[in-house]
Nucleic acid binder design. Structure first.
Lengths: 158, 158
DNA sequence: GTTTGACCTCAACTGCGGTTGAGGTTGTCG
DNA sequence: CGACAACCTCAACCGCAGTTGAGGTCAAAC
């Protein structure tokens, strides 16, 4: 039996509801750490449980692992994070969430307008030209995003 | 010069702001159709412009191509779709959008609660147990999703 | 008739968030 | 000491929404 502060991969996986392969993946991606036994097996500090909890919750909010990694990077490395630290990180997602909600609400409003007009008219549709970048320079449809811009999706975080 | 109702791939791509490879992709995926010249080159009916407009707008709303394909499948195949047809499809996205906004708002509210409590406590956190499925059967943390359920993301459509 | 640009197909690659499997090692129980 | 579960690494694969490139063909302008 390992010392109580050394958790095995199986234990961590069971208690966090993630797979062992996900633990490996998170470690490769720099989201969590482990140390090794003499026989090269991973052991985790208990703090990893909270860390993984944060990761899972954040993913549930639609945050990418890249963003999560960045947030985790702001935790102090000279001590175990406190409740206040985790609170601060969570507060950080609040703004992100607000922005996404606003964005979706704007899209919904635009959509309402377009449902009325049968729109998708390729020239005046707000939904189609989110940046307002299309002036009136002659009749008929033409390109809608600058053709070189690779059409970033509007609402996926990242 | 091809007859006015036969659009070449390059023309469609330029007018819709999509790449030719995307047109091929949409066709492979059953979202649009084309016919061929004697020399095996694609030609598109003008209606494809509106269809692609609908696809792009829908994607901008965060709808997956699979959902879009399904929606397009409800268009009549014996006539060219009317404004009313397109309106109906757009109305369909309204509910989808509403649901996503509600979901995000619930998450935001839960997050507010958790910011206060420093939470992520692995037992009582609403964010962590969206389905309420975790009863109290003994102390300490345990698995959070049924371990066999592959942890579906909460807010990505699909 | 030749050149040029647009087009064709097919296969492989991108990034994300992991999973799956092969083949081998460790660690614990009896 | 043997068995068996849990662990290790590495490589390949999934779906999504396309892109990129190779190698070859078509069509229109000159």
């Amino acid at each position: 039996m390992p010392p109580p502060h050394d958790l095995t991969p199986g234990t961590v996986a069971a208690r966090c509801g993630v797979s062992v392969s996900a633990l490996h993946f998170y470690e490769r991606e720099g989201l969590i750490e482990s140390h090794r036994t003499a026989g090269n097996q991973r052991r985790y500090h208990r703090d990893v449980l909270r860390r993984i909890a944060f990761i899972r919750v954040s993913q549930g909010l639609g945050i990418s692992l890249a963003q999560i990694r960045t947030a985790l990077g702001t935790l102090p490395d000279d001590r175990v994070p406190t409740k206040a630290d985790w609170s601060r990180l969570s507060r950080g997602w609040r703004a992100d969430l607000d922005a996404r909600i606003d964005q979706l609400q704007r899209l919904r409003d635009d959509l309402d307008g377009c449902i009325g007009c049968g729109c998708l008219s390729l020239r005046s549709c707000t939904l189609y030209n989110p940046g307002d970048s299309l002036g009136a320079d002659g009749p008929g449809a033409r390109r809608l995003r600058r053709a070189d811009a690779p059409a970033e999706p509007l609402n996926r975080p990242g």
